[in-house]
């Protein structure tokens, strides 16, 4: 991460569709090699922001610098250096996975052999000769990412790559995203999964109603909340009264299976529990980005 030469600079961009302010004064900088997440519920303006950076739309006002250049109007010099993944269905009809990659690769002058190698990266080597419409949702999603990467771009834009995938497919895709990152690419991606952004991103921008509400590494955002940590143990190892009496405990309650202790000092509480041998079924849940979102907007997060 070098601060001197950012991959993406966005300065106060705005875009309205009639009355609707889709993007309402967004600014941020993405460093080279950074994994940057834009997160927020549907309709928050994530996709429009991404499209403006990619050069697909012109902002009403504001400025975008992508690798030091302006992406709008269509900047042919810039195009080979950026990779954009669109919907999971953006494929040519009736072509196999390998042929899709080779065709997209040819648009950038990539040799067919190199293009086919991308299948390895996304774990689809055994599906090379399957037609695109015979692949599962997760496989198609990985193929579309491979198509975005086929020309070895410096900056990769992924718009909700994990949307509508089952948990297993999502996890497989995380491995792919990490592998891309290890190749030194800058990744800008949108998601509405807060847990995922927390795991993958160096920094996240939380967006709602066209504005960025917060922008920091996930851990900083969560820590900044100063929310209590929840320590949970099996019911019966300790009574609610005894638990409430421990040092640093703010509140304790139990249901049929679990005793939950809220505290802002989890370390002394945990050692006190350990002394009493009351750690059966221990779980510790700290605040998540979901809590951050709730705190910022005052409403429950709905993907």
């Amino acid at each position: 991460m070098t601060e001197e030469r950012p991959a993406v600079v966005v300065r106060d961009i705005r875009k309205s569709y009639g009355e609707l302010k889709a993007v309402d004064g967004v600014s941020f900088t993405v460093a080279e090699g950074e994994f940057f997440g834009i997160l927020g519920p549907n309709g928050a303006g994530k996709t429009t922001t991404l499209e403006i950076i990619e050069g697909l739309r012109e902002p009403d006002s504001g400025e975008v610098r992508l690798l030091g250049e302006s992406p709008w109007p269509r900047n042919v010099k810039l195009l080979p250096r950026i990779g954009v993944q669109l919907q999971a269905s953006s494929f040519f009809e009736k072509l196999t996975a390998k042929e899709q990659l080779q065709t997209f690769g040819s648009l950038y002058g990539v040799s067919p052999g190199t293009a086919a190698d991308m299948l390895e990266l996304v774990g689809l080597a055994d599906k090379a000769n399957e037609q695109e419409n015979k692949l599962s949702g997760g496989q198609r999603q990985r193929l579309s990412i491979a198509c975005a990467l086929v020309h070895d771009p410096d900056v990769v834009f992924l718009d909700e790559p994990t949307a509508a995938l089952d948990p297993q497919a999502r996890r497989n895709l995380w491995d792919v995203l990490r592998a891309i990152r290890e190749r030194g690419k800058t990744i800008v991606y949108t998601t509405h999964y807060l847990d995922e952004a927390e795991i993958l991103c160096d920094r996240v921008a939380i967006m709602d109603e066209g504005r960025i509400l917060a922008l920091d590494p996930p851990a900083v955002l969560v820590r900044g909340l100063d929310a209590p940590t929840h320590v949970m143990v099996q019911k019966g190892v300790l009574s609610v009264v005894d638990a409430s009496a421990l040092d640093g405990v703010e509140e304790a309650h139990e249901n049929e299976v679990t005793l939950t202790i809220s505290t802002r000092q989890p370390a002394p509480v945990l050692s006190a529990l350990a002394e009493r041998g009351a750690l059966d079924g221990l779980q510790v849940r700290t605040a998540t980005l979901e809590d951050v979102f709730l705190n910022l907007t005052g409403r429950e997060y709905r993907a």
Partner: peptide, 17 residues
């Protein structure tokens, strides 16, 4: 129509062709 709907056109527009 199908390329526009499936955003293949858009993908092509983002390539230097």
């Amino acid at each position: 129509v199908s390329w526009r709907r499936k955003q293949v056109l858009r993908r092509i527009r983002l390539a230097p062709v």
